[in-house]
Design a protein around this nucleic acid. Structure first.
Lengths: 240, 240
DNA sequence: AGGATGAATTGATCAATATCAAATTATTAT
DNA sequence: ATAATAATTTGATATTGATCAATTCATCCT
């Protein structure tokens, strides 16, 4: 495979073919009937983001919404003095770009080669007027994101390093199951530095904790980025 | 004043008089014209929650939405083993009760005597069909909550104890300003234990950090629950 | 394939905050 | 007002995870 930077940074084309889209069942567009989704198709564009490229930056004007079709995306904030905090990861079926502000308050970057479905904000908002169910569905997705953010607040406020790692693995696992993939083993599509940052730890602590989990036979590593969860259904007990 | 527990736990009556409601301008209902808000009035009920009482519990069925008119509310989650994490505080104008689940994933408790405007979930959802702008406005409020949760993730992941306290004070200050109140001094409507829990600290660390902030002339305490922020506009610099 | 670069692991020490304990100050009820 | 109770502050010590440093392991490029 060629290196991402050798390929065009952004590729767009029309005709995403919603009817046979792989994320149709879990994404916001899933509430539309076949006859109505053709209208959505006319206002959507495909966009491919190579691994490591940004989708948008903190401070950019919000004028485009995205639906993730393939790949994974990290969402992170930068403070004035340059500190960085990953606030979430997004996966196929997730809706990206909603904001209560005119400007994005976070950055979005592709963790692997990622396929998006792109909508102009104003155009999609007009589409909502015709199909209010679509906006209701997005409200539902945003509520889901909020619940996930609250879970992450709990994790950062109360969990030990070991618990944070295990909870993170369980989250990835159920994410994969939601997509109809196997929930075990799981693939870590991000480097240790991103895991550490997201979990409010350092890479050294993540590494040490992984070694402990291996030693305690709670996980098994396949290479450095794939993890098998031994007795997966017992893991919630370690989160006491 | 009598102790809360001596008074009826819950008081409901009709006719909340939306037209002259104090939070109309900032709450979800503010988007409705005078002529339309009368229709909202017919489906709303007043509800008073005395200090310390719960509005709903984690695991309760979601069948009511609330609009906070007066007071303040803490939102907290309990883990299986009894650990507690406050994930947010809510104030007048905030919309409470939205969820992507059928059951609440958190508890809501009044920090002081609190006045709510109550709506049946199904009835309000039907109201959305007639006035889709209302649902758009709520989507906006949920997005705002999500942004606040992401800020809290940043705080827990990257801020020191001192920074957490200062950021917390600034948040309360701008909350008060949004309500048209003075942003300085601020009133802490919750005990130290709630502040500590929310900020991922212990009460001892909160107390010690407050003492330091006093010593460094960054804040001045008026009693134990009111705080004056010296050179408030300089404080963001302490969050480097 | 092999060297170069970056990522991950492991080790030794340090620091921020937690924990345990006691004293002080507020609040509440009588 | 005053005793009783609860909340807050302060002190001494412990602990988890951070930091600094070195090594091992993967990946990428020629």
């Amino acid at each position: 495979m060629k290196h991402p930077s050798c390929r065009p940074s952004i590729v767009t084309k029309n005709n995403p073919k919603c009817a046979q889209c792989s994320v149709r069942l879990i994404a916001f567009c899933g509430i539309l009937e076949d006859k109505d989704i053709l209208q959505l198709e006319t206002i959507s564009k495909n966009k491919n983001i190579p691994k490591g490229n940004s989708i948008f930056l903190q401070g950019d004007e919000v004028k485009t919404f995205y639906n993730i079709k393939q790949g994974s995306v990290k969402i992170y904030k930068l403070s004035h003095d340059g500190r960085k905090q990953i606030v979430g990861f997004m996966y196929p079926g997730d809706f990206l770009g909603m904001s209560d502000q005119d400007l994005f308050t976070y950055n979005a970057e592709a963790l692997e080669d990622t396929k998006l479905c792109q909508f102009n904000k104003t155009v999609l908002e007009n589409f909502f007027l015709k199909f209010p169910k679509v906006e209701s569905k997005i409200l539902n997705l945003v509520n889901h994101e909020l619940a996930a953010a609250q879970d992450q607040i709990f994790l950062l406020g109360k969990y030990s390093a070991k618990e944070r790692l295990l909870q993170f693995f369980l989250n990835i696992s159920s994410q994969r199951e939601k997509l109809g993939w196997g929930g075990n083993p799981i693939r870590l599509s991000m480097p240790r530095s991103d895991i550490a940052n997201y979990l409010g730890l350092t890479i050294e602590t993540v590494s040490r904790t992984l070694s402990e989990l291996k030693k305690d036979q709670i996980i098994k590593m396949i290479g450095t980025h794939d993890i098998f969860l031994n007795n997966k259904d017992q893991i919630p007990q370690y989160l006491t």
